[in-house]
Design a protein around this nucleic acid. Sequence first.
DNA 1: CGAGCGATTGAAAAGACTCAACCACCGTGG
DNA 2: CCACGGTGGTTGAGTCTTTTCAATCGCTCG
Lengths: 229, 229
Amino acid sequence: MLEKSHKHITCSTCVGRKNSLLGSLCNEEMEHVNAHKACNYYKKHQSLFLEGSFPRGVFCINEGMVKIFQRGDEGKEQIIHIAKSGEMVGFRSMFSETPYRVAAETLEESNICFISKDDFLNMMDSNPVLRNGIIKELSKELSDRADFITNMAQKSVRERLAFTMIILLEIYEKEPINLSREDLANFVGTATETLIRLLKDFKEEGIIEVHTRKISVLNKEKLFAIAGK
Amino acid sequence: MLEKSHKHITCSTCVGRKNSLLGSLCNEEMEHVNAHKACNYYKKHQSLFLEGSFPRGVFCINEGMVKIFQRGDEGKEQIIHIAKSGEMVGFRSMFSETPYRVAAETLEESNICFISKDDFLNMMDSNPVLRNGIIKELSKELSDRADFITNMAQKSVRERLAFTMIILLEIYEKEPINLSREDLANFVGTATETLIRLLKDFKEEGIIEVHTRKISVLNKEKLFAIAGK
DNA sequence: CGAGCGATTGAAAAGACTCAACCACCGTGG
DNA sequence: CCACGGTGGTTGAGTCTTTTCAATCGCTCG
C-alpha cells in the first residue's frame, strides 16, 4: 500500500527516475530538482490538470498511474495515453506555450512530484542529454500516435481492442490490467456495451481471464494475431 | 508551371523559408545550408521516403505538396498529414533514430531540398532558436494528433469529412482542394464510396462546389457546424 | 479510337451503437 | 447486522451507419 502522506520523495532513490527522461541528471542538477520540486499524494480519480488550463510545470510520476485524455463533443472521453511510474506528463503543451488540449487524472492513488516550468526549462538549456532525450521522446510519441490514428481509422473494434490490450500489457507488465469498463472502452474508442461483448468473446476464446475489474491475458499470441501485428 | 530542372534553389530567396522552422537561421548558417543541401525536382506521386527506411536527413519543401501516410494491414493508406511549401518533413523519426513509420510522397510536382542529418543536427546544437522551434513544432503536432485520434474515435464519417475539409482549407488557402477521391477518403479514414456519397450530400446542401477533382468550399460556417468545432 | 483508371451508383450485408432493462457488488446508515 | 441505494457491469433487441461488392460511367492518355 502506498504512503498516503505528502512526505518528500527523494529523487536519488526514486525507482522510476533511472529509466526516465531525468536519468541523465548529474548530482548537482538532481539536488536542485530535489530541493525545488513539490511532492504530492493523489487519490484515485484526482485531476493533475484540465483541458484548457495553462501549463505551469511538469509532473513526474513516482508511483501510480495517470490517464491522459480528451473530451469529445458529447463529453465522452478519449484516452490517448496511460502514464505510469517514471513517466513525466504535462510537458508537451508547455513547450508550445498553449493551453493543454488534453487532461490528466490519476487512475489509482499515486505519488507525483511537480517541477516548475522555469526550473525545467533551465535544466533543458544547460543539459544537452536531457534536451535530446525530450526531443527523442516527443518524436517517438508522434510515431506512436500515427499508429494510433491508422488503427482507429482502419481497424474493427475487435482488432483495436486486441491492440489496446497489447499496449496495456506493456504498461501493467506482470499485473493484471485494472481499468473500469468505461475507461477501457474510452481507450479503444467504442461504446461500453460493445467493449463488454468483445471481452466476453475473448474470454470464451481463452484469450483472457476476467476477475471483476481485473483482466489477465492468457494468450498473448492470439492477441497479436487479432491486432494484426 | 514549375521549373522542372534540378536547378539550385537559393535559401535566401526561398519563399517558404521565412515562415518556416529555418526562419531563424543567421546568414552564415543559411549560407552553409545553401552550399551543402541538395535540390531536387519531384514528379507527381514520387516518393521521398518509405516506411521502414532509415532517415538520412530532412526534406525542405520549396514548392509543392507532400502527403505523409501509413499503410494499414490491408495496404490501405492512412494519410496523417499533408505538408506544403515551407514545411520540413522527415525529421521526426530522425531524432528517435528509428526507421520511418510513415512514408512521404508528392501529391503534385514539387521542388524539394535535402539537408543531411549531420548538417541539420549540428545546426540544432548551435542554434537554440532553431532547437526550440523544433521542440515547439513537435509538441504542437502531438496536440494535433491527439485531436485527430479523438475525432477518429468519436465522430461520424460525415463529421470527420467536414473536419478534414477545414484542415485542407488551411492547406490549400485560396486554391480549391485538389486531391483524388481515394486520397481524400484515406485522409478522412473511410471507404472511397462512402466519401463520394458524402461529397454529393455536401454539394446538394450548398456547402461545396465540385469540378472534377477540384473542390471549392462555399459555406465554411456550415462546415464548422458539422465538424462540431 | 480504345484501354484503363478514377469516379459514381445501387443493393445487400455487416458492424457497431443506442436504449432499456436487469444484475451484482459495495458501502452506508438505520 | 441487514436493508437500501447507487454505481458499474451485463444482456437483449432494434436501428442506423458504414462497408462491401458489383456494375457502370466517363474522362484522359497513348
